[in-house]
Design a protein around this nucleic acid. Structure first.
Lengths: 151, 151
DNA sequence: ATTTTATTGTTCTATATAGAACTGTTCGAA
DNA sequence: TTCGAACAGTTCTATATAGAACAATAAAAT
């Protein structure tokens, strides 16, 4: 039998992002999905480097750099050089970003309810644990590919 | 408990696409993930309109239009106006595209094996049926939003 | 028949995303 | 202590993606 997990994943990603951005806009938050994901990880840990954000979100480091740029311009984030290690850029939230948290989480929860409509708690848990397994596998595979390429 | 299905989905999508494109490149196929998905649906049904491709892939119609453009330039696809309904553009495969199918499917299968590494057949089925449920929910929700907006 | 409405794609614009090549910094080895 | 490798970000470039506004065509309403 033919499986098409990757195809479905991409479909869901697209649908979900279009819907989520509409909900954010309707709530008065002008954020893209990518920006939202970066905020999401910074709300859990106030200070992160570009690389760490990349690892948390699975975005390429140059992508993070570009998106953070846009958010700095919008006054949502700040950059600073880490004095301990001058190669690193430390990204942190501004007051403006902190003020967005409540609304963002509301929208996030509504999105979640849409997403998991018709799922029991057990089903949700089972599904998420599958997602985590696949994600971890792919993180690991990409790691391998990178190591292999560098030889 | 906090769920984050959407977050994981996006992570997986990014990882998967980066890995898949590398595999395609290594196999001598210069295709992006998005181009691959369009081929994938055209291999099942040789002639599709822009709108139908959008529905099958969950891409916005203007996105499909743009990606098809690139593929026409590369000699992979052809466009033609539907004489029955001159609003419609019929997209079809060229010989070049037909010649790519075998390799694409090989790579696809390898990708699938990576993706589902450690999954039993039952787990794969369970996971995919969850994915389909979520996708169908979101397709339906987007439909609702559109209907609502147009009033 | 003519006007209105709905459908289908395209264009225009802006952001997202990432590969490749690059700069600057740190660390380790000689 | 110096030089080369490893690391962290950025820049440059190209494609992907989609919202908004638009043009062309078809279908429906009057």
């Amino acid at each position: 039998m033919e499986t098409r997990g990757g195809f479905y994943i991409t479909q869901i990603k697209q649908l979900q992002e279009r819907i989520f951005e509409r909900l954010l806009l309707a709530a008065g938050l002008e954020l893209s999905g990518g920006q939202g994901r970066i905020l999401f990880v910074l709300w859990k840990e106030e200070q992160l480097t570009i690389g760490e954000i990349g690892r948390e979100t699975s975005l390429a480091k140059n992508t993070v750099s570009a998106v953070v740029d846009g958010m700095v311009r919008k006054g949502i984030l700040e950059r600073a050089i880490n004095p301990e290690n001058r190669r690193e850029t430390i990204v942190s939230l501004t007051e403006r970003a902190r003020g967005m948290r409540g609304k963002y989480e509301e929208v996030s929860q509504r999105m979640n309810e849409l997403f998991y409509q018709g799922f029991s708690g057990e089903e949700r848990d089972a599904f998420e644990s599958y997602l985590i397994r696949v994600r971890d596998t792919l993180v690991c595979e990409e790691e391998k590919i990178r190591a292999h390429t560098e030889l």
